[in-house]
Design a protein around this nucleic acid. Structure first.
Lengths: 225, 225
DNA sequence: ACCTGAACACCGTTCAAGT
DNA sequence: ACCTGAACACCGTTCAAGT
C-alpha cells in the first residue's frame, strides 16, 4: 500500500527474461543496488506518468538520487526501463486472459480483455507507440527490451481469440496480430487526439464489430450471401 | 520533370494559409529567398523520405547550402516544413474527394478515398502520427502548422461520409473524425509493425466493414433488432 | 560489484552581425 | 529583406576513476 504501483517484485526468481547471466536464476544483488533499482523504478513511474515515456533520463536519475551511470547500469535502454515498469501489468493481462477464458460469451470475454489492453497501453504517453513498434520488430537483431512483454500480450490475446473463433464468433479471416495492433492504436488515437469521453469505447466497439461474427441467428446454417 | 515532387507551387496567390502578413496576398519574395525556400523543400523531401519526419534540420540546411537560420526563417517549425511538403498532397485529396463523390456506389467512393488518405499519411515515417496529433490539438493556443491541412482532410472526408450516410451505407452512429483517425492509424500501424503485404488493405477493409451498412437487403424496411 | 559524474556527441533554437 | 553561423540549451550515452 505504500506505493500503489510496485511495478515488479524486485527479485522474481522465475522471471523468464530478467536474467542476462545464467537464464532463470537472477543472482542476488547487493543491497544498495536493489535499493537504487527500486528508487529508479519509483521515480521513473512518476516521471513517465507526468511527462510521458520520453521524460529525460538524467532527471530520473537525479530525482532518484543516483548518478546517470547507475541508471544505465540497471536499465541499458529506455525501453528496458519501460519494460520493467509495465511487466507487472503484462502479467496481469496474461492472468486476466485465463480468467476471461471462462466467460460464457467468448466474444464478451475478448471484448473485456481488449478494453483492459487499451487501458494498459494508455498508462503513459508514448507507451502505445512503443508497444506497436516492439510488435513490428520481431526480426531485428538488436532485440528490443519490450519484445518479450509484447509476445506475452500477443499470446494472451491469441488464446481468447482462438476461443472466440472456435465458437464461431470471430471472423476466420482476421489476423490475430491485426486485432492487437488495432486495439493498441485505439489507445494511441485517444492519446493524440482526445475528442470526447466515449471515444475509447466507441473506437474499440468499432474494432470489435469489424472482427466479430454476429450471434448465430438460428443456430443452423447462416449463408452469408 | 526535373523534380518529380514539387511540393507546392512557390507562389500560390490564393493559398488560404500561407501568408503571415496580409492574409490572402503573399507578397513577392526576393529571388534568392525563393530559391532558398525551394531548395530547402527539395532537400527536406529527400531527407524525410529517407530518414523520416525527424531528420536533423541542420542536415537539411547544410545539404540545401543555406545557414540554419535561413531554414528557420522560412519554416519556423518542423511542422511548418512538413506542412509545406504535404500541402500539394492535401490539395490532391480534396480534389479526389470531389471526383469520387461521383462514384455510383458512395461506399466505394469513400473506400477509395480512404485508401488514398492512407497512402498520403504513409509518405514518410512519422507523418501519420503528426496528422493525428494535429487533429487532436484544435483547441490549443499555439496553433500547429498542420492544423489547416488537417481541417481540409477532415472536410474532404466528411463530404464523402455525408454522402454515404445519406445513401444509408454508413452507420449513423459513427463519428466522422473517428473514421479519419482510424484510417490514419492504419498507416501508422503499417509503418511501425509491418507484417505482410496485404496488411494495409486488410486493416482498411476492417475499418470500412465496421462503419458501413451492408447494401440494403430488400430496399424496404430493415429492422436491426 | 557497484556507483559517480565528467566528457563527448548530437540536435534544436535564437540572435547579433552582416549584405 | 534576407542570410549567416556562433552560441546556448538540452539530452543521450560512455567510460575512467573511484568505493
Amino acid at each position: 500500500m505504500s506505493s500503489d504501483a510496485t511495478p515488479t517484485s524486485t527479485t522474481a526468481p522465475t522471471d523468464p527474461t530478467a536474467g542476462d547471466p545464467a537464464p532463470g536464476a537472477s543472482r542476488p544483488r547487493r543491497a544498495d543496488a536493489r535499493r537504487n533499482r527500486q528508487r529508479l523504478l519509483d521515480v521513473a513511474l512518476t516521471a513517465f506518468t507526468e511527462q510521458g515515456i520520453d521524460a529525460p533520463l538524467d532527471d530520473i536519475a537525479r530525482r532518484a538520487g543516483v548518478g546517470i551511470g547507475t541508471l544505465y547500469r540497471h536499465f541499458p535502454s529506455r525501453e528496458a526501463l519501460v519494460d520493467a515498469l509495465i511487466r507487472g501489468g503484462v502479467d496481469d493481462l496474461c492472468r486476466r486472459s485465463d480468467e476471461l477464458a471462462g466467460t460464457a460469451d467468448p466474444l464478451e470475454g475478448l471484448a473485456r480483455w481488449l478494453r483492459e489492453l487499451v487501458d494498459h497501453a494508455s498508462r503513459f504517453r508514448g507507451l502505445a507507440a512503443a508497444i506497436v513498434a516492439a510488435g513490428g520488430r520481431v526480426h531485428e537483431r538488436h532485440e528490443g527490451a519490450l519484445d518479450a512483454s509484447c509476445a506475452l500480450v500477443h499470446g494472451a490475446a491469441g488464446r481468447l481469440m482462438g476461443r472466440a473463433r472456435e465458437a464461431g464468433r470471430l471472423r476466420g479471416d482476421v489476423d490475430d496480430a491485426d486485432v492487437v495492433d488495432m486495439a493498441t492504436s485505439v489507445a494511441w488515437i485517444t492519446e493524440h487526439a482526445p475528442r470526447d469521453d466515449q471515444q475509447t469505447d466507441r473506437l474499440l466497439a468499432l474494432v470489435l464489430d469489424a472482427v466479430s461474427v454476429p450471434a448465430a441467428p438460428r443456430a443452423s446454417e447462416a449463408r452469408e450471401r
